[in-house]
Amino acid sequence: MSEKINLTLKVWRQKRGEAGGFKTYEAKGIDTDASFLEMLDVVNDEITLKGEEEPIAFEHDCREGICGCCGSLVNGKTHGSHERTTLCQLHMRHFKDGETIVIEPFRAKAFPVIKDLIVDRSGLDQIIAEGGYVSVKTGNAPEASTTPIKKELAEAAMDAAECIGCGACVAACPNGAAMLFTAAKVSQYALLPQGHPERTQRVKNMVAKMDELGFGNCSNEYECAVACPKGIDVKNIARLNREFIKATLSQGK
């Protein structure tokens, strides 16, 4: 059954182009059936009507865990680190009455803060632009059943393709690396025959872009895999490494 709880929030507030800091808010009478973002809605309504400052800016859209918009560090953990759960699907029943919750933006050099809890994750799109697709023009495609694909491969590709691009892997990584994100895309196309003609170029270009944008290096500590709300596995990182080594060895071939 739902009940009402009171919480203290320490929220990161940052204006555009300025340094930020934590500010404390009281969240009173929060229904335990509410989602984390709905709790923030309630707090924002109060801030708005008080009229002393602007409501807390946070990114969100679908609120059903698939668009990848939402995400903050909650008590130091991405999306609050409830296994395989995005922040919008985290419910307040997991918090205790009287608890203090620290909420701050995803931190990484490649994710500069725009305002409050909103960060710029456009780097992830730039990595995809380097080859996170099959270059097929509309109209080029052969009949869909021409190439049978082993069920296991299709399933493994789907495991990788489930990435929602929220950036939690980057924020959770001690090095701010985008390896899991990049690996998921590279893996999807390394597993499926459709991705093979471009596989050499794809992995090289995507890795090069990842480095250029200031993401860190992978030190195989697997924080990303714990943080991923879709449970993308580090086997994809191993596969990315393999693809990269293969691409290097097949130089000029």
């Binding site: 800091g21 931190r107 050099k109 993401f215 860190g216 924080e223 714990v226």
Partner: peptide, 19 residues
């Protein structure tokens, strides 16, 4: 490079997995 990329300053970030 990693120190720079991670941006740990001011953060309460905690780890769950790293040994």
């Amino acid at each position: 490079k990693n120190r720079q990329a991670a941006d740990h300053r001011l953060s309460q970030k905690s780890s769950a997995e790293r040994s």
